[in-house]
C-alpha cells in the first residue's frame, strides 16, 4: 500500500482553480483581449477604407460581402466599427492613465498637507458638483472637436474623483506607524510620499483606473452621439450610432453592431475591475 503524503496539484488543476476563483477577471480578460485584437489587427486584414463613400451600396443589410452592412453613405460598417474600436480603446486607456497620474499627485499632496487640503477639498467639491458628463460637454464646447480634446475634457472631469480617493487613502496611511517612523527618522518628505505612501495606495487606484477606463469609453460615445465629441468624419462608435439614428427603425443593424461592441468592451473592462477589486481588496469583496 502506498500512501501519498504530499501531492503537487497538476498544472491543469492549478489552472482550473485560478479560473474558478477569478472567473470575472478571466471572462473579462478574454473578451477584452478579443476586442483589442479585432481593433488592432482588424483594419490590417480587412483593409476597406472606413470612410469610403459609395452611392451604389447604400443601406445594405449585413451579408457575406458586407458583414455588418453599409450605412446611408454606403460606407462599410464592419470597417467603421473596427476603426471605432481603436478610438474607444485609445480614449479609455489615455483617460485612465492621465487622470490617475494627475489624481495621484494631487491626492498625495492634499492628503499629506492639511493646509493644502482645506483649499483643495473645496475646489474638488465644486468640480464634483458639476456632473462629469456635463463638465466634459461644457469643456468640449470651449474647444474644437478632436480626439485629443475629448481625452483632455474627460481627464479633467475624472481627476476630482481620483484625487478624492487618493486623498482618503493617504489620510489613513499617514497615521500608520511605518509612516510616522519614516518621518521621525528624518526621511525627506518626497521619500515618505513616494517610497512609503505611494506603493501602499496602488491597489485601490488600479481598480479605480479600470472603472475610469470603462466610464471614459461610455462618456466618449455619449459625447460623439450628441455631436459634442470627436468630429463626425472620424468613425467612433458614438458617431456611427448617431449616423444610424435616422434609419434605425428600418435598418437597425446600423446601430446594433457598434452598440454591441461598445457594450461588450465596457462590460469586459468592468468585469476585470470587479475581479481585481475582489482579488486586491478581500474586505470589500465580501460585500460588493
Amino acid at each position: 500500500m502506498t500512501v501519498i503524503l504530499e501531492t503537487t496539484p497538476s498544472r491543469y488543476a492549478l489552472w482550473h482553480r485560478f479560473v474558478h476563483q477569478n472567473l470575472s477577471v478571466v471572462v473579462g480578460g478574454v473578451l477584452l483581449l478579443s476586442v483589442i485584437l479585432i481593433a488592432l489587427v482588424g483594419p490590417i486584414i480587412y483593409s476597406v477604407d472606413p470612410n469610403a463613400i459609395s452611392p451604389l451600396r447604400r443601406l445594405k443589410p449585413p451579408s457575406t460581402l458586407y458583414w455588418f452592412g453599409t450605412d446611408a453613405l454606403g460606407r462599410d460598417l464592419f470597417a467603421r466599427v473596427i476603426a471605432g474600436g481603436r478610438i474607444s480603446l485609445l480614449v479609455g486607456v489615455s483617460v485612465s492613465v492621465l487622470s490617475l497620474a494627475c489624481g495621484i499627485l494631487l491626492g498625495l499632496v492634499s492628503g499629506f498637507f492639511r493646509s493644502v487640503d482645506a483649499i483643495m477639498s473645496r475646489v474638488l467639491e465644486a468640480f464634483m458638483a458639476i456632473p462629469a458628463v456635463l463638465l466634459a460637454i461644457a469643456l468640449m464646447a470651449l474647444t474644437t472637436a478632436s480626439v485629443g480634446n475629448v481625452i483632455i475634457a474627460l481627464t479633467i472631469s475624472e481627476i476630482p474623483r481620483v484625487t478624492r480617493l487618493m486623498r482618503s487613502v493617504v489620510f489613513t496611511l499617514r497615521g500608520q506607524p511605518f509612516v510616522e517612523a519614516a518621518i521621525a527618522s528624518g526621511a525627506p518628505i518626497h521619500h515618505v510620499l513616494f517610497r512609503h505612501i505611494l506603493p501602499n495606495t496602488l491597489a485601490p487606484l488600479i481598480v479605480q483606473g479600470t472603472f475610469i477606463c470603462g466610464s471614459a469609453i461610455i462618456v466618449e460615445s455619449i459625447l460623439s452621439f450628441i455631436g459634442a465629441g470627436t468630429p463626425s468624419s472620424i468613425p467612433t462608435w458614438g458617431n456611427i450610432i448617431a449616423d444610424g439614428r435616422t434609419f434605425f427603425q428600418i435598418y437597425p443593424h446600423m446601430i446594433f453592431f457598434p452598440a454591441v461592441f461598445l457594450s461588450i468592451t465596457v462590460l469586459s473592462i468592468n468585469l476585470i475591475g470587479d475581479g481585481l477589486r475582489d482579488y486586491l481588496d478581500p474586505r470589500m469583496s465580501r460585500n460588493m
Binding site: 437597425p252 462590460l267 468592468n270
Partner: peptide
C-alpha cells in the same frame, strides 16, 4: 454590472426596437 456597462442610448434603442417598433 450590466447597468454600468451598457450605455443608456443602447438600452434606449433596444427598448424602442422591441417595445415600440
Amino acid at each position: 454590472i450590466l447597468g454600468f456597462s451598457v450605455p443608456v442610448f443602447v438600452i434606449a434603442y433596444l427598448m424602442i426596437w422591441f417595445l415600440s417598433v
